[in-house]
Design a protein around this nucleic acid. Structure first.
Length: 413
RNA sequence: CGGGGUGUGGCGCAGUUGGCUAGCGCGCGACGUUUGGGACGUUGAGGCCGGAGGUUCGAGUCCUCUCACCCCGACCA
């Protein structure tokens, strides 16, 4: 991709009012644009990152048996009245159809849609367990949207729903899901600072679990056992004041962003919809459910918050919008050849072909945060080739074209 | 929902006790000179000052209402 052809543009000017780092960097670099408070456009560059994040999640959910589907975001009020949540969920967008005057909701969670459809296909113990997930735009009527894309009124989230014959089977799958989540966060580049966290809210079990990523801008306070790498959310510290794994009381307090949340729902939703199956003895039983969420757009914001430096974003290799950021200082002809050659090798290149000063181009390469920067200039050509630099390292080296291609490919293996 | 702030060319901002033709930086167009850390010269285009109503000879500036956005708090992935 040629920089000059991108739909978006970079900017130096951003309102003083914007305080959150992810908001500032993502807007200045042209990844996202704000339409209103808590509602963002994912521009072509930003959508590439978001899609990569979602594909990682998609792969790992498929790996643990999840089948992808797509549920509606627009729901009839009736389903929510059935579960009682029409009255209790404050952040549900409720409205009336202009024409028919029926009550509708634009939703941020999907039990009211998945259970009625699951009921049509789950009839016997032979139909269990089942795991389905979707990645979709959610709506929540936040009292106050904040922190860029970390807390939006419209945001992207993966939610997986599991259906089991009994609690024991749910427990089994729950552990499998925890492992899959760990793998997702590792691939997102934040695995080392994302902790399984015990939290309140189990309607069925004593605790639910969250995945909390350490960050000063996080809204949650957690207590981490550094030995077990397991944490406790402050909301339950009264009832659980020692490490749930090793019972140590040496816990480190820190701020964290909730990047994932998993629940044992039990029969909370199968009951109102009467989701029952026949067991081997021909007796009816309620299906037992689990619910597993990861906010993909929030994950994107989190990555920016925790991995950036003063110059800009530092994308982990698996989520970067392009493999390499090519900067030419003069030398347009040579740059164009290299750009074409790299692309022929299957390398996704963003070439900053704009007529900008050296300083500007280099500064924006840092802001954009693509893992590999390649500079072509008089200086590099005299030294025998092209300058290769990783975004998160200061070291540079001059490589000829073959070595450069090899080096880039090796990096992404 | 409570508290604090901000709305002025595409973006970021200034605009004095109401007074002449509303400025500046960035960006954008043209021409030229530049290229290893946010270059420069010449020149040009681009504004019902968020919206509505009012006060006044005169409103970006004062008053009322309203809409939007940002920050803090409570609530939430």
């Amino acid at each position: 991709m040629r920089f000059s052809k991108l739909f978006s543009k970079t900017t130096r000017n951003i309102s003083k009012e914007v305080e959150s780092k992810n908001h500032e960097f993502l807007v200045r670099a042209g990844y996202v644009d704000q339409l209103m408070s808590g509602v963002y456009t994912y521009l072509p560059l930003g959508l590439k990152v978001l899609s990569k994040i979602e594909n990682i999640i998609r792969e790992e959910m498929s790996e643990i048996g999840g089948e992808e589907l797509l549920l509606p975001a627009l729901h009839p009020a009736g389903n929510w009245k059935k579960t009682g949540r029409w009255e209790t969920v404050d952040d549900l967008y409720r409205f009336k159809s202009y024409y028919t005057k029926t009550d509708l909701a634009l939703v941020g969670t999907h039990e009211e849609a998945i259970v009625p459809v699951a009921k049509k296909f789950i009839l016997s113990y032979k139909d269990l367990p089942k795991y389905v997930f979707q990645i979709q735009t959610k709506f929540r009527d936040e009292k106050r949207a904040k922190s860029g894309i970390l807390r939006g009124r419209e945001f992207r989230m993966k939610d997986l729903y599991s259906f089991h014959a009994d609690e024991k089977d749910l427990d089994r799958y729950y552990e499998i899901a925890i492992k899959a989540y760990k793998k997702v966060f590792e691939r997102l580049g934040i695995g080392d600072i994302t902790y399984l966290t015990f939290a309140s809210g189990g309607t069925f079990s004593k605790f639910s679990h969250e995945f909390q990523t350490k960050s000063p801008v996080g809204e949650d306070t957690i207590y981490l056992c550094e030995k077990c790498k397991v944490a406790i959310n402050r909301e339950i510290i009264e009832e659980q004041s020692v490490c749930p794994e090793c019972e140590s009381d040496k816990l480190k307090e820190m701020k964290a962003i909730e990047t994932g949340n998993i629940f044992k729902l039990g029969t909370k939703f199968s009951e109102p919809f009467n989701l029952k199956y026949l067991d081997k003895s021909g007796k009816e039983n309620l299906a037992v459910m689990g619910c597993f969420g990861i906010g993909s757009s929030r994950a994107m914001g989190t990555i920016v918050e925790v991995l950036s430096d003063v110059k800009g974003i530092v994308w982990p290799k698996e989520v970067a919008p392009y493999d390499a950021h090519l900067v030419n200082l003069g030398k347009d002809k040579e740059a164009e050849k290299l750009y074409n050659d790299l692309q022929k090798e299957g390398i996704q290149v963003l070439w900053d072909d704009r007529e900008e000063s050296a300083g500007t181009k280099l500064a924006y390469a840092d802001l954009l945060g693509i893992p590999i920067r390649v500079v072509i200039s008089d200086k590099s050509l005299k030294a025998g080739g092209y300058e290769f630099k990783l975004r998160n390292q200061e070291k540079t080296e001059i490589l000829d074209e073959n070595k450069l291609i090899k080096k880039i490919k090796e990096y992404y293996v």
